[in-house]
Simulated assay, not measured.
Amino acid sequence: MTSIVYRGAGPSIAYARRVANLTQAELARAANVALGTVRKIERNERGISGDLLDAVAAALDIDPARLLPDTERPDDRLHRTMPGLSAVLAEYEAPEDGPCRTPEVLARAVRSVVAQRLSARYAHIARTAPALLAELCRGVHAAAPAERQTLARLLVDACRAADAVAYKCGARDLSARLIDLMRWAAGYAQDPLVDAAVAYVRTETFFAAERYTAGLRALERALDEVPRGTGPAVIAARGALHMRAAVIAGRARDTGASALHFGAARALGSQVDEGVYAGTAFGRDSVRIHEVSVAVSLGDGQVGRALELAREWTPPRDLPAERRSGFYIELARAQLWSGSPDAAFESLKTARRIAPQHVREHRWVREDAGTLRRLKRSDAASLSAFAEWCHARG
């Protein structure tokens, strides 16, 4: 993938370093870079590559987007990864020969991109996903049957991370093809819980096409395939599918099905600790976030419930950043609909602080920021800057 060099990040890096109470030498060691390089970057005597930006951001425990000036576009790295992903998808059934690391090493690499997805740090995924997917495809083809199951599960997880980039960037066709690769890999994994995770992600295609009733049917079929059991992984798999079904039923304006699935999700959520199961966060807090999603999906008559829940509860910080920011994006829409544009803007800013890459690429954020800018609020300058940052419509 073409290397991107960013200019003008030095002052932001220096500021973030001081906030983190690090010296330049300590930052250099943490980012595994020469001290002289850090000094030159902070003085804006040289640019910073995408890989180095990720390393510095990781050392500072901050999102890379927050280190770049407004004139830069951190989402360029996301969009430029699309050709690389397309190349992998064109040949996954007959990949070229090449090296393949051990399952243990690949598992560590996949855990890294999964963590980046849950943290909504898509730039890291964009940088590493094409090569990782290609390597896993080679491994699945070359492995013995027992090892193939393990590699296939890893391929599903890596595809899901890559799909997060494609879907958030609006590359819907590429997202659908990545989901097809997930389904292909799931056939080798031979694990009903992997199948359930793929069904959860596949719902994106129905959301994108606005085929909500068909998506609900697909989720209900997937629920029929999940084994019954009392283990946390099984409970979470069923609960996650019910959460997703409640939201898409709401989009279909099927209040009965939405209530039925949400009730099931709530009951299952009370039976497990909040956590990430097969790549999906599930538990009481995740169910509460989806209560806002369901209310917004159902529209006018239920918006008050979303606002009421937000007054009573806020997502805890230990939830994945992508899910927490999603809560505030949904809440902003409810606030806008209810005639509270200032509150909606505050919610959008909160979402950006949590997961800027997620927010910047979100279609609803762009729509709502454009609407807010047309309303010409008193903080028009701040709102205009936000709208330009996320490329808002209107």
Rank of each mutant, 00 (worst) to 15 (best):
I4L: 06
A9S: 10
G10C: 03
A14C: 02
R29Q: 14
A34R: 03
I48F: 05
S49H: 12
V56L: 13
A58I: 00
A59E: 04
A65Y: 00
R66M: 03
P69N: 06
L78F: 03
G84N: 11
G84D: 07
G84W: 13
E91N: 00
A94F: 06
R101E: 14
E104P: 05
A107W: 06
R108G: 04
R111H: 14
S112P: 00
A115M: 09
Q116I: 10
R117W: 01
S119C: 09
A123N: 00
A126H: 01
T128G: 02
E135T: 10
R148N: 10
T150W: 14
V156L: 07
Y167T: 03
D173I: 10
L174A: 11
L174I: 12
D180M: 09
M182H: 01
W184L: 08
W184S: 06
A189C: 03
Q190C: 01
Y200N: 09
T205C: 14
F207W: 05
R211S: 14
Y212Q: 06
A214C: 08
A214G: 08
A214D: 15
A218C: 13
L219C: 13
A236V: 10
R238L: 11
G239P: 04
H242L: 07
M243N: 11
A249M: 07
L260K: 10
F262I: 00
F262G: 02
Q271I: 09
G275D: 15
A281R: 00
A281L: 01
R284I: 06
I289Q: 02
H290A: 06
V294C: 08
V296M: 06
G299L: 08
Q302L: 01
A310N: 02
R311P: 01
R317N: 14
Y328H: 14
A332P: 10
R333I: 04
A334V: 14
Q335D: 05
Q335R: 05
L336C: 01
T350W: 01
A351R: 03
R363Y: 07
D368A: 01
L375S: 15
R377M: 13
S378N: 13
S382A: 15
F386P: 05
